[in-house]
Amino acid sequence: MTRRLGLLAATSCWMLLLVAVMAHAALAVLAAAEFATMGWPLPTWFDTTAVTLVLATAAAGLTASVFVALRAAAGSRALRALIRAGRRPVPLIVHNEAAGLGCAGRLDAVAGEDAFAVTYGLFRPRILVSTGLAAALTRAEIGAVLAHEREHLRHRDPLRLLAARLFAAWGCYLPAARWLASRAALGHELGADRAAAGRAGRGVLAGALLKLASMPACPAVAAANPEGNGSRSLEARVTQLEAGHPPRQRPAVNRLLASAGTLSLLAPAAMCCAALSQFLPGGLL
C-alpha cells in the first residue's frame, strides 16, 4: 500500500513538473508574441518587466535544457561506439551471476582492468561492466553489484536521471532545482542498494562499495564532475546500510525559500503575461 502511494506521489510530481514546464513554455510564446505585436517597451513598466521576466527565464531554461539533452545524446552515441570497439566476452563469473538475476541478456563488457559497473541507455537500458570487475570482486560481491544495476534497469533510471536533469535545467533560475535533481538521483541509488542488500546481504554490498569506491579517483573523472557528489552520496548509502532504512535528509531550507521567493515573482508576471494576451490579434484568452 505504501509502495503504491509512493509510486502515485512520484508519478504525480512528474506530471506536475511537466505541466509547469509546458505552461511556462506557452507563456513564453505568448510573451514573445506580445512584444512582437505591441513593441518594446510595453505601455507600463510593470507589464514590460513581467513579460521580460517570463521570456528571460524561459530562454535560460530552454538553453540549459538543450545543453543537457545534447550532452546526453553525444555521450550516449560515443559510449555505444566505444562499446562496439572495446567489447569483450562477459567474464564467466559475471555472466553466471547475471543469469541468476535474469539480466544476462542485457549485459555488456568492455576491456578494462579498472573495475566499474554502470547502467546506460535511455529506452532499452543495459548494464555495462569492465572485465576488471571479475578480478576485483568476489562472486557474492559481483552478485550484489549486478542486483543493484538490475534495479536501475527495471526502473529505467538513466531515463529518469536525464528527465530530472532536464527539469532542473529548465528551472535553472530556481536555487532548489539542482538540489531536487540530486535528491532524486540519490533516491534511485538508495532504492537500488535496498534491493541489492535484500538479495546479497548488506555485508556483501558493503564489501563491494568499499572496494570499488576506494580506488583512487581518476583526475579526469574529478575534473568532469566538479559537483563532487560522490562522497555525500556514499555517506547516505552507508548510513542506510547501517540503519536498515533510508537516512533522513534535511531539506535545503535556504534554497527552497529562495526558490519560493523567485516563484512568487514569476507568478504575478505569468498572470500579467496571460492577461496581456487579450491585446493580441484574435485575443487568445
Partner: peptide, 16 residues
Amino acid sequence: LAEFGDAALARFVERA
C-alpha cells in the same frame, strides 16, 4: 565515462 558520465548513466558508485 569521465566526460559524459553524469549525463545519463547510473553508476554503481562514484570514485571518491
